[in-house]
Design a protein around this nucleic acid. Structure first.
Lengths: 125, 125
DNA sequence: GTAGAAGCTAACATCGATGTCAGGTTCAAG
DNA sequence: CTTGAACCTGACATCGATGTTAGCTTCTAC
């Protein structure tokens, strides 16, 4: 498929898809005229990439772990080096901390919402 | 206390503290010479602010909800308007989505780590 | 009063994914 | 062949919190 369809099917802008390619996250065959031609598997791959971006990983990190991920084609084509594993463990910890922060913040929001919704301030009672 | 101590005690840079003030998130009395002078409660307040920043909220949003938060001084000094509540609910949903993304991504990382650590790739078997 | 630490303001830099625009080429259907 | 949609590259803009620097002032302890 071409870039327009891939963008439509993944919800990722063409701009971003080209950026992913530039960062080595996505490859595409080229038409005689230079247009990108993606295989079906590209859809899954873009979804994976998005997930990792959503986790706050940098493209450089994603670049390193992508070959180690179970792809739609089957098993991973490569195994993570100890160094990469160490880096991923650090990312994992960062993610854990982020989740904790989010849970705490969500509680704060809930408290404010609850106060405003259910319990009119004492001054009004 | 002055800005240096507040920075030390909260782990937030002086630069950021001044920025918070500029955004209206933090107020400080001023010395005759213009130096900032913070009350003890500022420590808690800065911690709150950091939590909300960590959740991905913008300073403008934090500005709006801060007066509605239970402060170290006691109850909230203001109650959220319905409009604000709606906005906070949207933030809450965003946070939920973010958490989901993070959980998914963490699983991906765990899988890669597990593969690299324990299970040599199938092609070798 | 004086030296050095600590503060002040203002301005500019940064990071990274993404938006957007310009100017040109290719593709597909008539 | 022609036309309009889709695509190409390249460059510049954006957002927002924070880092950094410069040049100056204030504070504190001697």
């Amino acid at each position: 498929m071409r870039i327009g369809e891939l963008a439509r099917r993944t919800g990722v802008s063409e701009r971003s898809l080209r950026y992913y390619e530039q960062q080595g996250l996505l490859v595409a065959r080229r038409t005689a005229g230079g247009h990108r031609e993606y295989p079906e598997a590209a859809v899954d791959r873009v979804v994976h990439i998005q997930e990792l971006f959503a986790a706050g990983l940098h493209s450089r990190t994603i670049y390193k772990i992508l070959p180690c991920m179970r792809d739609s084609d089957g098993g991973p084509s490569e195994t993570a080096t100890p160094l990469l594993v160490e880096e991923l463990a650090a990312e994992r910890e960062r993610i854990d901390r982020t989740i904790d922060d989010l849970l705490r913040s969500r509680e704060v929001l809930d408290e404010v919402i609850a106060t405003a919704s259910g319990q009119p301030p004492a001054e009004a009672a």
